[in-house]
Design a protein around this nucleic acid. Structure first.
Length: 546
DNA sequence: GCCGTTTTCGGCCCGACTGTTTTCAGTCG
């Protein structure tokens, strides 16, 4: 399977062309080719490229060139023309191709490190377009970027861990290996990846692991452990324990540190359940092992019966090709059926988000016809008419109340004016919470893990407001995990109903629900704390009383 | 660069915000 590697070539071409200031349509074409290749279900090297939508004569020729030579000349030429560091400078919020080019040509800045030095030394004040405000904004952006990218978001870390596991199992089919560490605990971001394996003889497995082609270097090795580094800098550790102490090792490697240090070190056990039994406690799910009150509760047999992914009966925030989704309503319906869901809501963007081809009143009503058509062919799946309606700067909704009242489910979301002062941003969203047509606030703090920090907003105040009106708050799965676990816990404790949605823009995003479930579990949520664990009948009843 | 024709090139992702520009370019969602 070379899909990911080839897709990466085209993504890189797109990034360089963006830097070069090339046509945004050409750039988009390369990005679409990359995602078509990444999404292709089989090995791309065996595919009929002409039959893949998004690939044309130019990208097909480049694909064949890459299959044959392992390189694409156009990309090599671009790499020779621009230092690789310019691409990372492009990722700084506030810097686009023009400003990056200027920094490079005028000040020889071709890395984030050099940009930081130049900012600290006040070397940019003579540069056109870099006034005092811009320089200050850049300093803030760099600080935030450092915080944002120092750890890997849960979804990405899960993908990487799966890749490593797959590669290892391919080479050692009989190995018994588990994911441990903060990834197993479902933390929103992950520092290192930890694995624990069970084997009488550690050496062969450690050899196999150390030889995986995924690693850049092996950092350390002893008789039980190999520590390696991936190309993106993430450290990966495999500990091999004999079967008689696998349970203890898994518990230990899962952490957290404060959870482990709260008790005396247990002796060797085969399973984690024996570890907890030895410590006089019920089994504590990994998501709760954060050194809060889990030991007391586990000893008093009062741990919550945490939500499971199988408790989720539908997805109430999804997109289609009516706005910026890539799949038709029918394709999404099929994917929801395949997953075994009882219902889902089509919630495309509203008109304020023009870039996404957001829907105005006319198209919202047009879409109803298509939903009805598809619904007729899916008797066992309820398709709700929904919208992800922009909450405008002043807290009013992008579409009027009369239209919203026609819809089954209304998600209100902020996609603009992220930099309002705390009080103003909070009031804006509370106003949406108080709109009787708004059923759910989507991604309430606006963050995107590794990309964008949350806007300034008083989340406890939102929770209070939601409690009063009965509006739900979202745990947006996927790349946001918003609300985050701590806020979700506060909302749950306040009696606010939460809803885990994927915000899926394609069928392949639908399984992301599990990341939201992990977040809810860390918040101590049981099935009853979620809106979309309701049966269809109960959900319809809930909607009637909204 | 891809697509879809109206077969040979035009349309595709638009509108608002921001800072510094002295009338608008660059960036972003």
């Amino acid at each position: 399977m070379q899909n990911a590697a080839l897709a990466r070539q085209f993504d890189q071409i797109a990034a360089y062309l963006e830097l070069a200031g090339d046509s945004i349509f050409k750039i988009r074409a390369y990005r679409e080719a990359a995602s078509a290749i990444a999404d292709y279900p089989g090995p791309i090297e065996d595919a009929d490229l002409n039959a893949i939508e998004g690939l044309g004569s130019a990208t097909i020729a480049k694909s064949r060139e890459w299959f044959k030579t392992g390189k694409i000349k156009v990309l090599e030429a671009l790499k020779a023309q621009y230092p690789a560091g310019l691409l990372e400078v492009m990722r700084v919020p506030g810097l686009g191709p023009k400003k990056v080019q200027l920094l490079w040509k005028e000040k020889n800045i071709d890395s984030i490190a050099k940009l930081q030095v130049a900012l600290d030394a006040d070397e940019l004040d003579t540069l056109n377009g870099f006034g005092p405000k811009t320089r200050e904004n850049l300093k803030t952006a760099l600080r935030r970027l450092g915080e944002l990218t120092s750890r890997t978001p849960l979804p990405d870390a899960t993908g990487t861990a799966t890749k490593i596991l797959t590669a290892l199992i391919e080479r050692s089919p009989d190995a018994h290996i588990e994911i441990a560490g903060s990834l197993r605990r479902g933390a929103e971001t992950v520092g290192n990846l930890n694995f624990v394996a069970s084997s009488e003889d550690a050496t062969p497995l450690l050899d196999t692991f150390a030889a995986l082609p995924l690693f850049e270097t092996i950092i350390a090795r002893d008789e039980t452990t190999v520590k390696a580094r991936l190309h993106d800098g993430v450290e990966v550790e495999l500990v091999v324990a004999p079967p008689v102490r696998f349970g203890t090792q898994l518990w230990f490697s899962t952490g957290s540190k404060s959870h482990i240090e709260s008790v005396d070190a247990p002796p060797a056990f085969t399973s984690e359940r024996e570890v907890f039994a030895h410590l006089g406690a019920d089994y504590i799910p990994p998501e709760l092992r954060e050194g809060r009150d889990e030991w007391e509760r586990a000893r008093a047999h009062t741990l919550p019966a945490l939500l499971e992914t199988r408790d989720i009966r539908g997805d109430l925030h999804t997109h289609s090709n009516w706005s910026d989704g890539v799949a038709s309503i029918r394709q999404m319906a099929q994917a929801m059926t395949d997953r075994g869901y009882a219902y889902f809501a089509v919630c495309d963007h509203s008109k304020a988000l023009a870039m996404t081809n957001g829907l105005d009143a006319f198209r919202v009503r047009e879409q109803a016809h298509e939903i009805a058509e598809v619904q007729a062919d899916f008797p066992n799946l309820k398709i709700f008419r929904g919208i992800e309606c922009d909450i405008l700067r002043d807290g009013t909704m992008d579409l009027d109340d009369e239209l919203l009242s026609e819809l089954d489910f209304v998600v209100g979301s902020v996609h603009s004016a992220f930099n309002l002062p705390l009080a103003e941003q909070t009031d804006r969203i509370i106003r949406a919470i108080q709109n009787p047509h708004v059923d759910l606030i989507g991604h309430p703090t606006g963050r995107v893990l590794g990309v964008r920090p949350p806007y300034d907003v008083d989340v406890p105040a939102l929770i209070e407001a939601a409690k009063k009106t009965g509006c739900c708050l979202e745990i947006n799965a996927s790349e946001r995990l918003d609300l985050k676990d701590d806020y979700a816990r506060i909302a749950k404790d306040a009696g606010v109903l939460l809803c885990i949605d994927t915000d899926a823009h394609s069928p392949k995003m639908i399984p992301n629900i599990s990341f939201g479930v992990a977040t809810a579990r860390r918040a101590g949520c049981e099935a009853k704390h979620l809106l979309n664990t309701k049966t269809l009948a109960d959900l319809l009843e809930w909607m009637r009383h909204r």
